[in-house]
Design a protein around this nucleic acid. Structure first.
Lengths: 283, 283
DNA sequence: TTGCTCCTCACGTCACGTGAGGTGGC
DNA sequence: TTGCTCCTCACGTCACGTGAGGTGGC
């Protein structure tokens, strides 16, 4: 059982939200210590909370979510299928919402029609699928958390001897650098045979991605990401999947693992990074 | 000058919202009668209110909107260009938002993977551009407002003698039947020469639209629309533009105008209507 | 006069967020 | 003991919505 803090980080939800859901009877801790009042949650509760957050992101009120998650209408134990009509309705709402957003995008493009953003040297490329050991977490941006996550992932991979010679990379699940807390997944490529072991998953291929590179420290990434999106102005291309950051040349502690020396440098100015934005739609 | 009621209907905004914006200093009436307190708005204020609603739909707070609409940062009279960096930022937020919604759509499709919605006899077709005299309004759904709007539009067209033999149709700007108030635009096709006269505009062509027909009264439309969206489940097709309702056979008063008799019937059961959903993406 | 529209004012709502002030556990 | 985590409780926030009770204009 986990205390509220660790559980909130795992679930990527604030403490306040968990307490609020408890008070509302929407999502209760697995156990509450009656003397201290401490809430304890189990990892098995994560999928339910994930479904609750999905429903909330879909625009459901908490009352609706309670209907959809606490019991089936027929009194049977919980099955998604029993609520299929409601989920279909949510899907329709979402499709309409996306269409309205696209309409607003066109309105904005019309407003900005006379502003010419500076072009960026972007290349389009396809990205192959790869197996990777990944660690996902919600961290505050700009810190050294990503570094630590990579160190940990590389060490884990080193123990199995499955490392390939591909570059490490990161998936930005928010698809947006401009947040105090970002949801990132660091990925260390491994041999396909390792699929199925703990932490290893297949990263989907990308048919088309817009790519830009930069040298030096990572603080440039948000600005460059913005410029990349701006240069898509007027085009009908859209972000199709989480944005990736590929580390071409970088610094590493190499405590407990060894990397190909062609990746490495001690000089921050020699760092080389590529931002990849998966695309769909007409280019 | 218009009183608050008529203005709110024109602007598709509630009375309460207009009063709230007045109190907040965000959007003031052109004139307030000091003795009665009545608010009076001018039609020239509509574009500003439209921009305010667009910004709010883009997720701006009212404070941000005030910054963006009341003055330029350099003290010059208002120009959109002066705020271009902010608008570009909003565009980026929106693009990221759309990408997140697409992700949630895929999550929902995964949840519903084992549910097979009943297939619908839908056909895909391209729709040509046409000139039409249109009347747009925000009405309560299910009422006879649409009928009245068509009567009025047909009468206007009859006076000019520009009617073509195409079917009348309606654009659903909410793209969603399930609302108490829907934003609809009734369209009466006219000859292209009429473009430029009052109320006449060009309706964009549609490269691909999913189409279904039904007979009888109009209350079936929402259900059928739902079924159409459900049958798009799992596909990557998306709604690309306002949904259309084409009246193939229908009833009409014909007071002040005459329609082609092949359109007309007195028997509600003989009514024939087609729902057209413009699509983009892979079919 | 009736019916409709408009007014203000006070309070409610929704899903949390923000401290204040205090306690539990290693 | 210190530092960190956790607790409750009361209040704030945001963009309105909801009546109640009353007035203006044709």
């Amino acid at each position: 059982l986990l205390r509220i803090g660790p559980f909130s980080r795992l679930a990527r939800v604030t403490l306040k939200t968990l307490r609020f859901y408890d008070a509302a009877g929407l999502f209760r801790p697995a156990w509450t210590d009656p003397r201290s009042g401490y809430r304890f949650y189990s990892a098995a509760q994560l999928p339910l909370l994930g479904r609750i957050r999905l429903l909330r992101d879909l625009g459901c009120s908490l009352a609706e979510i309670q209907q959809l998650t606490t019991s089936s209408p027929d009194g049977q134990p919980y099955r998604v299928g029993a609520h299929a009509p409601v989920y279909r309705m949510l899907r329709r709402r979402l499709m309409v919402g996306v269409a309205l957003s696209e309409q607003r995008l066109r309105q904005l493009d019309a407003l900005l029609a006379h502003e010419h953003p500076s072009g960026l040297p972007m290349r389009e490329r396809r990205i192959a699928a790869t197996a990777a050991l990944t660690i996902r977490d919600c961290i505050r941006s700009g810190g050294s958390d990503i570094h630590r996550m990579f160190e940990s992932a590389e060490r884990q991979v080193a123990r199995t001897g499955n490392r390939t010679r591909q570059n490490p990379f990161m998936l930005l699940h928010d698809m947006d650098y401009h947040r105090a807390h970002v949801d990132v997944e660091v990925c260390v490529p491994v041999r396909p045979e390792a699929l199925g072991s703990a932490g290893v998953r297949l990263i989907e291929p990308v048919a088309r991605a817009a790519c830009v590179q930069f040298s030096g420290d990572y603080s440039q990434a948000p600005t460059l990401f913005d410029a990349a999106l701006d240069s898509m102005h007027g085009s009908r291309a859209r972000i199709a999947a989480p944005v990736r950051e590929v580390y071409l040349r970088f610094g590493a502690d190499q405590r407990g693992y060894k990397l190909d020396p062609r990746f490495l440098t001690d000089d921050v100015r020699q760092y080389r990074t590529e931002i990849q934005i998966p695309l769909r739609g007409i280019s």
